[in-house]
Design a protein around this nucleic acid. Sequence first.
DNA 1: AAAATCAACACAACCGGTTGCTTTAAATAT
DNA 2: ATATTTAAAGCAACCGGTTGTGTTGATTTT
Lengths: 343, 343
Amino acid sequence: MEENKDITIYDIAKKLNLATSTISRALKDHPSISEKTIKKVKKAVEEMGYVPNTLAAGLRGNKTNTIGVLIPTITQPFLSSLISGIEIAAQKSGYNVIIMQSHDSYEDEVSLAKSLYSSRVSGVISSLAMETRDTSHFQQFVSNNIPLVFVDRVPKNFNTFRVIIDNYAAGYKATKHLLEQGCTRIAHLTAGSEFGNLYSERKRGYLDALKDHNLPQIDELIVNLKTVTYEEGAKASNKLFDLELRPDGIFASGDIIAVSAIQTAKKRGIKIPEELAIIGFNNDPISQIIDPNLSTITHPAAKMGKASAEIILKNIKSNKKDEVKEITFLNTEVLVRESSKRI
Amino acid sequence: MEENKDITIYDIAKKLNLATSTISRALKDHPSISEKTIKKVKKAVEEMGYVPNTLAAGLRGNKTNTIGVLIPTITQPFLSSLISGIEIAAQKSGYNVIIMQSHDSYEDEVSLAKSLYSSRVSGVISSLAMETRDTSHFQQFVSNNIPLVFVDRVPKNFNTFRVIIDNYAAGYKATKHLLEQGCTRIAHLTAGSEFGNLYSERKRGYLDALKDHNLPQIDELIVNLKTVTYEEGAKASNKLFDLELRPDGIFASGDIIAVSAIQTAKKRGIKIPEELAIIGFNNDPISQIIDPNLSTITHPAAKMGKASAEIILKNIKSNKKDEVKEITFLNTEVLVRESSKRI
DNA sequence: AAAATCAACACAACCGGTTGCTTTAAATAT
DNA sequence: ATATTTAAAGCAACCGGTTGTGTTGATTTT
């Protein structure tokens, strides 16, 4: 069992009769090392199969070239695209991404945040867990000058970078679109809590759009789902379809819910979009698979990831702890497809 | 700008008039530290807000409690579920997961493997990039006793752990199912290379099933896609539907392709499953959304991730470098839904 | 030719835990 | 009362790069 010890810069230094500091500097093309030596070092590195130990470098320099991402789950299309966007931007700058899933649990989020801090990530990007109300476990990053970006589901009162869409405007646009298609009884399928001001903002947009078109708020047309799942969507849809006065339009705050509504409606023989126009939210892959194709609101996941990563990269080692951090708004668009196209 | 230096065990040692070694041991409930001292230390840790530095610990101990995952992308449902499975198992044992995407590029894979090695991960789980032919960049892990698990798309000749499904059997089962539904001209939509023996194995199963049912291999019914995308699926499907003798069944080696085939067929007015039975592969979410629902082969992503992680955890620090590593096979099942149900 | 300048590299402390070995003091044995 | 064992904690090297400060010999300046 030969011990396969790692090659270190000490081994290279010994072989070339140089100091470790010279090796270290040569590897980063430091100007005070001669061309000749740099070449010699790099050749030896190649031959001996040296691989730098980022732990040692990180420990000494107190930085790790790693961005931590703390999100509810990676299996949702929106979030996996978000990560992908982060990852591509990070990789381009030589940064790695370490991903942790809170599974929407507050307890896990707290513990994982501590773990991220322990591993001395250079920056953190997070989308809050559904359960989360108190966000003080993120304070450690700000206090220690580790750039922190909240994305999509963000806390309201926390002075750090935020990358979001204008959920209010998006909700307004979605509803307005249905109104323009001639809908007069528009239902809204929403979810979860008022925290994270995601669904609640969309709902606010929905309500204001109605008001601006002189339509009343009808409470029985607004259904609040416990969880954003297909099953809950079907349950809520059935509730709507059982009403004496059925809605002629649905704005669902998520594509899964909208798809569920479409299929539930189809089972009942309700014609889409003639009798019922439906618009979703997110532009998930399923929105293009469902028949009829689902109209939806675009949610620029990859762009949001990219923007978040770039903010992190720009603010690493900036030492502007106490400044007011900007909020980045990304655009959403109404994507009109078959499920809502009446005219 | 107050310098917010991290609290270290030195700070705690100083405050309590103890040695750093005592602090370190107290934090891990070492038997040679008294209960009283342990309590005192933990209280101080709490009060002073000490957070351990895993870099330092990792450097000293040459281990990091981190599992590296190197896969083509995380946006495919199969792969994001795989990661999720890995992550849950890892988190349970106090391990973190660092994820890197090769984007199916060989060059990226090589560079990311080096990066994973640099960060001294305790284990590596990888699914090969499409482009990859040579896998010698993974040798460094095995040589240094870092457990390596290949999952799903695995190399043939590399003595390390592998977690896979029996793609041959799955391809056979899928085809057999179509045969049992009365299909006699079964097409096969496959993809990519012969390397990674993923699609090629499924195809072999397809061919053997035909043979066992005394049906000939018809080359015009076997279409090889360049990439596994909706568009390529549509193109291939149209090619099939343009044939003089159209197929009456399609076994598509992926749900996206199958869904694409369904929608292409529907556009042409081909009745599914009456005129054309279709079965996919993976059991992606879209398979339940498409109308008619897609029959498919289950691909136990989360289980495969869990199994991979458990193998890593079991083999960390085992020092059995030269042993023959086992292959883990997970089960697949034929999931019969509407798209293939004729009887 | 002596002094000043500079290129190129060496020295050694440092980052923050971990761990084998030693020391100290209290408890037990003789 | 002395020797022996044991519990509890201290000492210091170590992991592998990084970096501020020195050192040396060669080149340039006056």
